[in-house]
Simulated scan of single mutants.
Amino acid sequence: MLLHIDEETILDLVTLISGENGEKIVRFLLKKPGITDEELSQLTHLDIKEVRKILHKLNESGILYYDLAREKDTGHRIFKWYISQEQAIGFILTNMRKILDRLEERLEYEKNHQFYWCGTQGCRKLPFEEAMDHLFKCPTCRKPLQLIDNEQTIRALEEKINEVKRHLEQLSKVKKIEETEKPEAKAPSKQKESSKTTKTKTATTVKK
């Protein structure tokens, strides 16, 4: 049985990519996979152009994919939308690795520098070299700069790094299981499009 990331994680990811309207759309897709852009427009009360824009943005990110069908009588194209668990996990892994790199760089910077601060909220702390350039006076409020202890910041960064690493390890295991249990893809049959409804499943890859 395949493991899946929870719905709230998917919704957080979608909100990050496409905002609150994207979250509205995906909430309905979680409840009813395979509904069309027209149906989503009616359910969310969003303009059809906005819905299609968000759907294609999430498709480009690899979070969604669609089945393309054609109406028997009119030949009108119908897009039925689905959530791609595997691609969502890949997207999360890629971005979590980027976050981890930035956190580790920040931790290294904090460990290798002394910082000075005036104590005024809204004023930034300065590394030793910059504080010296300003003669140890805050460039914003002109108050004297004092050496501060950044051990609390270092501990917070270390805790966050460990947390991200734990999540990465868990998601990596999920992805490996899904890749192991994924059935082999069958070669698509080459048939000409007829007046009957035809379907073509499309899935995008995660952009890094």
Rank of each mutant, 00 (worst) to 15 (best):
K143L: 11
S61P: 00
H4A: 06
D73E: 14
G75Y: 00
D6S: 12
C123H: 04
H45E: 12
G19Q: 06
K137L: 14
F91Q: 00
G22C: 04
D37E: 15
H76I: 07
S41D: 08
W117F: 11
Y116M: 04
T94R: 14
M132E: 10
I5T: 10
Y65P: 00
Q121L: 12
P127F: 00
K72D: 04
Q152I: 15
A131G: 10
S18C: 14
T200E: 15
R52M: 09
L68I: 11
W117N: 00
F136L: 02
E23C: 02
E38C: 14
V174M: 12
D37Q: 10
L29I: 10
G62D: 01
K98Q: 08
E178K: 13
L147V: 07
R102T: 08
Q42F: 14
D101H: 12
K49A: 13
K208P: 02
A185C: 06
K24A: 02
D101W: 07
P33T: 06
L43T: 07
D47Q: 08
P139S: 07
R166D: 06
A185H: 12
L58M: 05
L93T: 00
E193Q: 09
K182M: 09
E193L: 14
T200D: 13
S172H: 12
E130F: 02
L103R: 01
